[in-house]
Design a protein around this nucleic acid. Structure first.
Lengths: 208, 208
DNA sequence: AGGGGATGTGACCTCGAGGTAAGTTACCCC
DNA sequence: GGGGTAACTTACCTCGAGGTCACATCCCCT
């Protein structure tokens, strides 16, 4: 076999994928800050220097992880945002897309939105390159809704965008803690909850 | 002065408060995981061993911080939950209480909900003792709303509770990044946004 | 005056994590 | 068969963080 070279002879591409998968699980489990490269290496069945040989540094490893996860997520969200829906429907389409594309691997979201990545580092910038794509789309959708309601305050729009992305974050995090739940089931939950909240908020608005 | 003892002569109680204030700012700024005790000590104008002499360990320091912050927050939320409001009104009363009691110190919230605290540690348990109080109240309020909408699925209720607390977390975090904003102004934003979302969700529900 | 306790610090220890150097094994190809 | 190279590891270095010890300073009280 031409591919089998070296002591264990796993070709570089394959090994890189194994390392990436192990690293994504570890980063999702304990966060970038608390993760250790040697733990990732052991999980991938190899030794630490091979990880450094392939990814350069812990930060480089994270950047590779977040580039993979971020492309999957941002591509899907851009796709579902391009469907032309507005308001609640647009939001639910986004959730539908995310539950579909992250089915079986909801932990990838946690790699993207990892609160343990230190500010100002290259790791944070790499994550921001992807989350900024989501942010732009979210501002768009949220702006439409607030504008309809007569609120054009830019800070309100920024805060509402953060709230919306925070809601996605909460749902995806809950999903990562319940990995047996299929994506379709999570989507159904979100739809039920949205309906319930709409009823409650509508009633509250009428009462106030 | 009877209080001035020792080299610099700051009595223990006063010093403990200074250390606590510095630690809360540091924990809020970079998170428990990334914070270092020596940085806290320097910010408080003293040396590291004094911090250890008064608080025992980094974990003990965090427990003291989170006990102070958690009591302030949980007491207020229990108070506003006891006012008898339901649905959206209850939620807005909670936000009103939080913006009032955290005015000038919104960073205390970040100490309570610090995602960099490692799971399974005493620090995490100390934070959970306070956040559990909030969680119980949130489940209550959220349960009412979902029940009214005909959704009695317990997992739906748990997820919705997390979403609600996540929304509070987002707002309080945004506030901590905009410390010049007075609490009343944050509350006004949330009220405008809630009205906007209610309109949007209501319209989406009618359209779907 | 001087012992005792509170306040406070410099110097040190330990340990784990990021990161590196040098060498080993196995295969390909001439 | 013997160099070249890819794959891989053991052993090491460095550094910062948590944590501790012995000691210094100052005031109160008898």
């Amino acid at each position: 076999m031409a591919a089998r070279t070296g002591t264990k002879g796993v070709p570089r591409r394959d090994r890189e994928e194994q390392i990436l998968a192990a690293a994504q699980e570890e980063f999702a489990r304990v966060g970038y800050g608390a993760a250790s490269v040697v733990t990732v290496a052991r999980a991938a069945g190899i030794s630490k220097p091979l990880v450094y040989s392939y990814f350069g540094s812990k930060e480089g490893l994270y950047v590779a992880c977040v580039d993979a996860a971020g492309s999957i997520v941002a591509d899907e969200v851009e796709r579902s945002a391009g469907l032309g829906a507005v308001g609640l429907e647009r939001g639910l389409l986004t959730v539908a897309g995310l539950t579909a594309v992250l089915d079986g691997r909801p932990h990838l979201w946690r790699v993207l939105f990892d609160p343990t990545v230190p500010d100002g580092t290259e790791a944070a910038r790499a994550a921001a390159r992807h989350t900024d794509r989501l942010h732009r789309l979210a501002v768009e959708g949220v702006g439409e809704m607030l504008e309809l309601a007569g609120d054009s305050d830019p800070a309100d729009r920024a805060l509402t965008t953060r709230i919306w992305i925070g809601m996605l974050d909460t749902v995806l995090r809950w999903w990562a803690e319940h990995p047996d739940e299929p994506g379709a089931s999570v989507l159904a939950r979100v739809e039920r909850i949205a309906a319930g909240l709409a009823a409650g908020l509508g009633a509250g608005l009428a009462a106030g």
